[in-house]
Computed example of a mutant assay.
Amino acid sequence: MYLDRTNRQRSESMSTKTLAENRQRELEQSLSTGTYVDPTAGKVRLGEIAEKWLESRHELRPSTWWKYRGLLDNHVLPRWGDLPLNAITKEDVAVWVAKLVRSKDQGGSGLGPSQARHAYRVLSMVLGWCVPARLPSNPAKGVTVPVAPDAEHVYLTYRQVELLATAAGTLRTKYNRPTAGAAVNRVLILLLAYTGLRWGEAAALLVRHVDLANRRIRVVRTFYELGGVQHVGPPKTGKARTVAIPASLVPELRALIAGRDDDELVFRTARGLSLRANNWRVREFNAAVAAAKLKVKGLTPHKLRHTAASLAIAAGADVKVVQQMLGHRDAAMTLDVYGHLWPDRLDVVADALDVGRAAAVAELAAA
């Protein structure tokens, strides 16, 4: 017999006195250290807890919430939904992760490493949410997950950026009329390539977010789509940021937004509608790549963001500047993605140390 954290009387039976005494010591220690877990709390099905966990994530962007919803429905709940929390083991989670990336003809789910990592992460977050109230520890913690292959980055040169922007601004339909985005394509591509804005952030810019006098853009929102419907939300990290505009782009932006009201979109179709990501990529961007005759494999609008980072680094920007420009959560993420672009400065540092040492040696020799 013992009292739990709520002073409720509990009892457990053991087959021997020794086991009972050992269990008594364990209970006393867990109660004193605050790690006690009610044995009945872990008997709840994971599916029930997963629904509560997802409903509690009010801070998530709708697109992220629905992504988690899909991962739960398609991968997590079919395997774990009916099991009690305390029946889930690290070994079983490891086997499940391995099956996620196994091909379907071998009894697996056929997921790529990245998608498998996302599914595992959702399961781990649900289980972690249960610690310490329902579980003493997270059984998914420490499971080895598939390593996602390094993304193949594409970096355009200044010349390629200019060729692409010019081609995009002169696109014509088969009826020899300007395409829906021809009037804004040039400035949009230049802005993406020289500021590092995400496409959705640029597409959602309002005139009042552009300060041409101080050459600044305030990034406070983005476009995203759910079920084919366009929505407006905060930037990916949830935080606003300020981005510098190269002086050469100011005249082009000024001409584009001249006479516009503050609450009008900077980039819009010929009919005054907002740009849609898939339509713009297929009908405008891909057509411009072909028209510019750029033989660059894997070139997408998002690769212009990588281009902006590479050009900034080549121009001497340090990691903190690039982090702020791109809106990364921390400098570690910036280094993970673009660290290989910073020049090797080991010899520069070593040479500077030599200069300092030589001066000290000379000073001592003259004394």
Results as ranks from 00 to 15, higher is better:
residue 200 G to P: 03
residue 227 G to V: 02
residue 223 F to T: 11
residue 114 S to V: 10
residue 58 H to P: 03
residue 135 L to V: 05
residue 93 V to S: 01
residue 147 V to P: 01
residue 14 M to P: 05
residue 91 E to V: 14
residue 110 G to V: 06
residue 288 A to R: 03
residue 164 L to K: 03
residue 160 Q to P: 10
residue 304 L to Y: 03
residue 324 Q to F: 02
residue 28 E to L: 04
residue 145 V to T: 14
residue 298 G to P: 10
residue 44 V to H: 01
residue 79 R to G: 04
residue 136 P to N: 06
residue 69 R to A: 08
residue 293 K to L: 05
residue 240 A to L: 11
residue 245 I to D: 08
residue 284 E to C: 11
residue 307 T to F: 00
residue 78 P to C: 14
residue 364 L to H: 12
residue 164 L to T: 08
residue 271 R to K: 12
residue 91 E to C: 05
residue 94 A to I: 14
residue 191 L to V: 04
residue 333 M to Y: 09
residue 92 D to P: 00
residue 33 T to P: 11
residue 213 A to S: 12
residue 157 T to A: 06
residue 338 Y to G: 08
residue 170 T to W: 04
residue 46 L to W: 08
residue 239 K to V: 08
residue 186 R to P: 04
residue 323 Q to P: 07
residue 164 L to E: 02
residue 76 V to Q: 15
residue 40 T to R: 05
residue 317 A to F: 09
residue 247 A to W: 14
residue 49 I to Q: 08
residue 344 D to T: 09
residue 35 T to F: 00
residue 278 N to V: 11
residue 38 D to F: 00
residue 73 D to T: 11
residue 343 P to Y: 07
residue 174 K to M: 12
residue 87 A to W: 02
residue 127 L to A: 02
residue 137 S to N: 09
residue 125 M to R: 09
residue 246 P to S: 02
residue 280 W to Y: 13
residue 328 H to I: 06
residue 281 R to M: 07
residue 346 L to V: 13
residue 254 R to S: 04
residue 65 W to L: 14
residue 165 A to K: 00
residue 61 R to G: 05
residue 343 P to R: 15
residue 242 T to Q: 06
residue 82 D to H: 13
residue 280 W to C: 10
residue 339 G to F: 11
residue 360 A to H: 13
residue 184 V to Y: 02
residue 255 A to I: 10
residue 171 L to N: 03
residue 188 L to A: 12
residue 264 E to Q: 15
residue 31 L to W: 03
residue 86 N to I: 01
residue 31 L to H: 00
residue 132 P to R: 00
residue 295 K to P: 08
residue 272 G to V: 00
residue 297 K to V: 05
residue 268 R to W: 10
residue 252 E to Q: 15
residue 183 A to W: 11
residue 201 E to T: 07
residue 113 P to T: 11
residue 81 G to P: 13
residue 337 V to T: 15
residue 335 L to K: 01
residue 348 V to F: 05
residue 245 I to F: 08
residue 33 T to F: 07
residue 74 N to F: 14
residue 73 D to L: 08
residue 174 K to E: 15
residue 207 V to A: 10
residue 216 R to D: 03
residue 306 H to Y: 01
residue 243 V to N: 04
residue 26 E to S: 12
residue 124 S to C: 02
residue 272 G to R: 07
residue 251 P to N: 01
residue 283 R to T: 12
residue 363 E to M: 09
residue 272 G to N: 04
residue 175 Y to V: 00
residue 263 D to F: 00
residue 262 D to C: 07
residue 158 Y to Q: 14
residue 3 L to C: 09
residue 339 G to K: 12
residue 305 R to L: 03
residue 118 H to R: 06
residue 295 K to H: 15
residue 115 Q to R: 13
residue 112 G to Q: 14
residue 96 W to L: 02
residue 114 S to P: 04
residue 183 A to C: 07
residue 361 V to K: 10
residue 304 L to H: 04
residue 58 H to W: 08
residue 336 D to Q: 12
residue 52 K to G: 10
residue 40 T to S: 08
residue 92 D to G: 09
residue 200 G to N: 06
residue 219 V to C: 05
residue 324 Q to C: 01
residue 243 V to Q: 08
residue 267 F to A: 04
residue 49 I to G: 02
residue 35 T to A: 02
residue 41 A to M: 01
residue 79 R to M: 07
residue 279 N to L: 02
residue 223 F to E: 02
residue 142 G to R: 13
residue 240 A to T: 09
